[in-house]
């Protein structure tokens, strides 16, 4: 028996994530205190400025939507006992696919086009996770490794494609052409970027929560994730649970990518996913893989991001303070502070 926890089974932390939050904020505060000439105003810029102006707040909420979708899928995979490390590539594929399909059919009615774009994004994300899911199901291959590798290959290939054959030569950005205006996410609260995306994320969180807590399959999936041998022994359909969560996670990541592409830019920009897959993992872990906490956790991350941006603009402090805070959250998200829960079983 090794005392190490199974790398594929992060602890379900629930409120256990509070120390992680506290550590992250404390680190940010200490750095600001040390580096700033005017700590008070820097504190205000970091912690409070996101809430002082409605436009900034609306942007913050919008910013949380896509990572929230990613985190929901990641949490679902965590619940099934696995680790989806391919969020980055799945989101990239989803965003690019959504743009390509909408460029191909430029004259649909707006809502239909948007729906189509999202579906295409979800399908592309799912397709990116499909090889891993299939080999997991049929060969028991390691999801952690295969999702990451496939994702990296997809990222590099899309980097090339967007810089090459798909590129809009008239633009300075390395990006595809822009989709028709009708397909842009409608803004609810201009000039902010707030769209219905956060509602979509909340709805997804609600559905996932209902599924996990009140459906038979959800319960079975949970139990399978905790103890596959048990699930197999009592007769659950373990092969399905080795397959579907990963596919759904891929679809959610793809949808998140579509959101990124159709939201701010209306086009697929090279490198547009910018670490959303990693953020999804952190958020899922911070939320203890509980869909009810994923949106709040995503908002917390968006706050860190906006806060660090503000502090760098307003107080000249490095915006990387937000990255450090996020890293600390991730470092401590699976830690246990209340002593070991159970002594190691005798043997």
């Amino acid at each position: 028996m090794t005392p190490r926890p199974d790398p594929r089974k992060p602890a379900f932390s629930g409120l256990g994530a509070l120390p992680a939050l506290a550590a992250a904020l404390a680190a940010a505060a200490i750095y600001i205190l040390a580096a700033s000439e005017d700590p008070a105003s820097a504190f205000r810029a970091f912690f409070l400025s996101p809430f002082t102006r409605p436009v900034v707040l609306a942007n913050l909420v919008e910013l949380a939507a896509a990572p929230c979708l990613c985190a929901l899928g990641t949490a679902l995979v965590f619940r099934s006992g696995d680790f989806n490390l391919g969020g980055e590539g799945q989101a990239y594929a989803g965003g690019t696919a959504a743009v390509l399909i909408l460029l191909a059919v430029p004259s649909l009615p707006g809502p239909a086009g948007l729906a189509g774009g999202f579906l295409a994004g979800a399908a592309a994300g799912a397709a990116t996770s499909l090889p891993s899911a299939l080999s997991r199901r049929t060969r028991g291959a390691d999801v952690l490794l295969s999702t990451f590798l496939v994702s990296q290959a997809v990222v590099l290939a899309l980097d090339w494609a967007i810089a090459g054959p798909l590129r809009d030569p008239s633009s300075n950005l390395i990006a595809t052409p822009v989709v028709s205006d009708a397909y842009r996410l409608p803004r609810l609260f201009p000039p902010s970027g707030l769209s219905f995306a956060p509602l979509l994320a909340a709805a997804a969180a609600f559905c996932l929560d209902r599924f996990l807590r009140t459906s038979r399959r959800g319960l079975e999936l949970n139990l399978y994730g905790r103890n596959p041998a048990f699930a197999a022994s009592v007769g659950f359909r373990v092969r399905a649970y080795a397959f579907w969560p990963l596919l759904v996670s891929g679809a959610l990541n793809g949808a998140a990518g579509a959101l990124l592409a159709l939201g701010s830019n209306g086009r697929a920009v090279r490198g547009m996913t910018g670490g959303i897959g990693w953020n999804g993992i952190s958020i899922a872990l911070l939320a203890g893989n509980d869909p009810r906490w994923v949106l709040p956790a995503a908002l917390f991350f968006a706050w860190l991001e906006v806060g660090s941006r503000q502090v760098s603009i307003l107080a000249g402090i490095s915006a990387d303070v937000g990255t450090v805070a996020k890293a600390l959250v991730l470092l401590l998200a699976t830690a246990r502070f209340l002593g070991s829960r159970r002594r190691e079983a005798r043997k």
Binding site: L223, N227, A229, A231
Partner: peptide
């Protein structure tokens, strides 16, 4: 019992 019969953590 704990490995196959029950699902610890649930």
């Amino acid at each position: 019992r704990d490995g196959r019969g029950l699902c610890l953590g649930a």
